[in-house]
Design a binder for these strands. Structure first.
Lengths: 112, 112
DNA sequence: TCTACATTTGAACAGGTATTCATATGTTGG
DNA sequence: CCAACATATGAATACCTGTTCAAATGTAGA
């Protein structure tokens, strides 16, 4: 019961739609989504993200820049290292809802 | 076993992540997102979607095929026309959560 | 300062994808 | 069956983007 069925059917602003699409597009890449998921817990440094996911630091950094610019993640420097974490919990909610969606069994006939 | 279970959140499977990314990628295109939003209400026929959004029927049809294959939308034929509507309410929840996210004011300082 | 470490950045390449146009398929009514 | 309409499909194109590599920037310690 996180998102109440407040009809969001008419979002309205075209600008809002573009913003929404931007966020969704960022989450639409598996590598980037993995990075997001990795950052949902405690702040984690770039090197650890890269090692954990088996990616180069360069690639991780490229993605982190986009995610930070889109305000999905935030960064915090501690000495030589920089820690990334989720900016808020909304992304977690979004992902959670989507997990429910794909977990939905196909109880309707496929009409074609 | 997969590469490394992150277990940061309740999502584990790599396959799940790819499925999630697929859905998010579909929602990551403004045109497609507009089509989805248009279909969140009552079932609407292709021609009306196209007219409502100022797009060609061909383009709308291309997008509808992807959205139907991804089980975001469902189709229902009535005579000559085919009506599309959301397959369930989860997508609406996802969008709703994301709207909340972009509506969040920036009350934290940006680290550079 | 010099060195080693951590992260970022830019360019370049490869693969993906949104759009358009032309054509095909399918449906209803005469 | 034929004509008119509604939607789907395939190919071609132009654009976008994820990845890699090399180099740069920044940081802490000796």
């Amino acid at each position: 019961m996180k998102a109440k069925p407040s009809s969001v059917v008419s979002i309205g602003s075209e600008d809002t739609i573009v913003q929404l699409a931007d966020l969704f597009r960022l989450m639409g890449d598996p590598t980037r989504l993995r990075i997001i998921l990795t950052c949902l817990g405690n702040p984690i440094k770039v090197g650890d993200i890269a090692e954990h996911l088996g990616l180069s630091s360069s690639l991780v950094s490229h993605h982190l820049r986009l995610l930070k610019a889109a305000r999905v993640l935030r960064s915090e420097r501690r000495g030589k290292q920089i820690f990334y974490s989720a900016l808020d919990d909304h992304i977690r909610c979004v992902i959670d809802d989507m997990v429910v969606h794909i977990g939905e069994p196909l109880d309707i006939e496929e009409g074609d």
